[in-house]
């Protein structure tokens, strides 16, 4: 298949994925305890009113018709009204989503910036003390829950040293970045451990490859071989890993935002559970899954672009 054909085929795959995500969220909503109509109208509603509202919401239709109605509303961005905030769910999410996206993007940049040099040192010094030290550090990183790391950073750098604000989101671009730096670092520390482990293994693997021997035998300097040939090839796996871990990052953002009181969708999700704000939970589950599936799509496309072997 031609490259354009492959790209088109991959783009088309997103349609059934979105439908399936919708189906899962629909089923989750159906599992909710209690009837939405009696929840909305209360116990003393007349039978007539109940029937009318059921018809209005399409609840008297067969299940698959209900699903189509649901899917149609989703496509129009109509997620209903937030029970707790009494505004359209779409508006709430649109207001809260940027903070989460900035947080995860910043965390990714920090994590990659931290992990790449350390993984490089660990792999090129494999078996010696810098490697042991770095691996021990990422073992601790992988075993530390995000909320705990966040709380420690918050105490030392915000409450103690007062270098950073204790929470919130600030004003303007600079204010947002300043407020999100500590939360992003929290998220980045655990993420960088994952990247580091993966990249270290990838570098060690590439070092075994024949083209590296060939590059060396051509008389290229160690520096050129390591940076141009080894690191560049090993970083391919990091690109894939970052794409595949977007879901984990968003999950981490839920916790980080709760610790640092960042007004993003993660904190909204937790707040909504305690407020029993089911329309918001439902919409967020859907939106976050859609973001992850788009991240998978971009990862695949980037991989096709970076590594011509994938598309062949």
């Amino acid at each position: 298949m031609s490259r354009a054909g492959l790209v088109a085929a991959r783009l088309l795959q997103i349609v059934p994925t979105f439908l399936a995500i919708g189906a899962v969220v629909f089923v989750l909503a159906r599992l909710l305890p209690g009837d939405p109509v009696s929840a909305m109208l209360g116990d003393r509603a007349t039978e007539e009113a109940v029937t009318r509202l059921r018809a209005q919401l399409g609840l008297d239709q067969p299940l698959w018709t209900q699903f189509l109605l649901f899917a149609g509303r989703m496509l129009h961005g109509d997620f209903g009204t937030s029970i707790a905030l009494r505004v359209p769910v779409t508006a709430v999410i649109a207001e809260r989503l940027p903070a989460t996206l900035v947080l995860t993007a910043l965390a990714t940049v920090l994590a990659v910036g931290l992990a790449v040099p350390l993984a490089f040192v660990a792999a090129t010094q494999a078996g010696r003390w810098p490697d042991t030290l770095i691996r021990a550090a990422f073992q601790v990183g992988l075993s530390s829950p995000i909320f705990y790391v966040g709380l420690l950073l918050l105490t030392v750098f915000a409450a103690g040293l007062r270098w950073f604000p204790v929470g919130g989101y600030g004003d303007g671009v600079a204010g947002h970045l300043y407020h999100l730096l500590l939360p992003a670092l929290t998220l980045a520390l655990s993420f960088s451990a994952v990247i580091m482990r993966n990249l270290r293994a990838a570098i060690l693997e590439v070092l075994q490859a024949e083209f590296v021997d060939f590059a060396r035998s051509k008389g290229l300097s160690r520096r050129v071989v390591l940076f141009r040939h080894v690191l560049r090839n090993a970083l391919l796996s990091t690109v894939t890993l970052v794409g595949l871990q977007v879901g984990t990052l968003l999950g981490g953002a839920v916790i980080t935002e709760s610790v640092f009181a960042v007004p993003g969708v993660g904190r909204l999700m937790v707040d909504s559970i305690f407020a029993r704000d089911y329309p918001v939970i439902q919409a967020l589950t859907l939106v976050l899954a859609v973001i992850v599936s788009l991240a998978f799509l971009v990862t695949d496309l980037v991989q096709m672009w970076l590594d011509p072997r994938v598309a062949r």
Binding site: T248, V254, I273, I281, T285, L288, A289, S293
Partner: peptide, 25 residues
Amino acid sequence: GRLVDLVVTFPFLVLVIAIVAVLGP
């Protein structure tokens, strides 16, 4: 196979939290 593709598109923690939301903490 399709089920696996589907489950991995949901952030694990978010899906678990959504189910806990339905069932109660």
